[in-house]
Simulated scan of single mutants.
Amino acid sequence: ILTCLYPPEVPRDCHELWESSAGKAPNGVYLIRPADALIAAYCAMQEGGWTVIQHITVNGSVDFDRLWDEYKVGFGSLTGNHWLGNEYIHQLTSGSVRYKLGIKLVDEDAVTKMGEYDPVLVEGEDAQYRLRLGLYHGTAVDALTLEPESYLHDNQRFTTKDHDNDNYFQNCARLEFQGVAGGGWWYDACAGANLNRRNVIYWQKDCNKEHLCKYAWMMVKPSDMVKVVHSDCKRDEL
């Protein structure tokens, strides 16, 4: 017999909300509890209950050239351009449930490309929020786990302008293009992809200075490969 406390007062992520609403909850900002603390997050409900961890508009007003502590707790507007926060991304992806990472890119002609990495794990601050990625599939180029010109973002630590953890002789987050610094990212030496540079959204051949993209999103939700088991469940012995 499996005894559970249903429903939890605050869901762990947007996907729990999506499931509890039978897929009818609207897009918007909701309270979630990935660990001990309550946080607000934007939920892409119409796309299946994804928790949005990043959204950027090319040449938008939100500055992504931020310090380590700002990337840790997040910044920007949840209904617009923002970074949810490395600590919360870590909490979401490091629990007992396996998560996947979704990437959504929209170019100037409104052509949308998608990609998923399954699983995804962002390690804790003691590991500098290192990114761990699994298998990829999607219509966008795999720009994170392939290795074009030694730009491999998988297994890289997070770098900001005041925390240099990349593999380049300079700080990749400080390097500028058209007067705009790179922003925080999981750099190698330096980037085959970077969704946190305001003036050019970069994703190899899909988004670059020749083929401009207008919007990018990063999202997480539980993997389709595993069954979600609530942590507040306990088994009663017969």
Rank of each mutant, 00 (worst) to 15 (best):
V141G: 08
T159Q: 13
G179M: 07
N155C: 08
W186Y: 07
L135I: 08
G184M: 04
R197D: 01
R197F: 07
R197W: 11
L146H: 05
H137Q: 14
R157H: 10
A173H: 03
Q170A: 08
G182A: 10
C190D: 12
T160A: 12
N196V: 01
C172K: 04
N194Q: 06
N165I: 00
A143D: 03
N196C: 14
D188A: 07
D188I: 05
D164H: 11
G138M: 14
A173F: 02
G134A: 14
H163G: 04
A193N: 09
A181M: 03
L152H: 06
G192W: 05
Q170W: 12
R197I: 15
N165Q: 15
A193S: 14
L135K: 07
W185Q: 05
Y136A: 07
N194D: 13
L152T: 10
V141R: 14
N196E: 12
V141Q: 13
D166W: 00
Y168E: 05
H137P: 00
Y151L: 02
L175R: 10
A173S: 15
L195R: 04
P148S: 11
L175F: 08
D162V: 01
G192D: 09
L195H: 07
D142Q: 07
W186I: 02
L146W: 09
R197Y: 06
L135A: 13
D188Q: 04
N196G: 05
H163P: 02
L146T: 11
P148I: 04
F158Q: 13
D188L: 04
R157N: 05
H137M: 13
A173E: 08
S150Q: 08
Q178M: 11
E176F: 03
Y168S: 14
A140C: 12
Q156R: 14
A140D: 06
L146I: 01
G134V: 02
T145M: 09
G182C: 04
F169Y: 07
T139H: 06
C190W: 03
H153K: 04
G179N: 09
C190E: 08
P148A: 08
G182W: 04
N165M: 11
A181H: 10
C172A: 06
A191H: 11
G183R: 06
D162P: 01
L146N: 13
Q178S: 09
R174V: 00
N196M: 15
A191S: 14
V180L: 08
H153M: 09
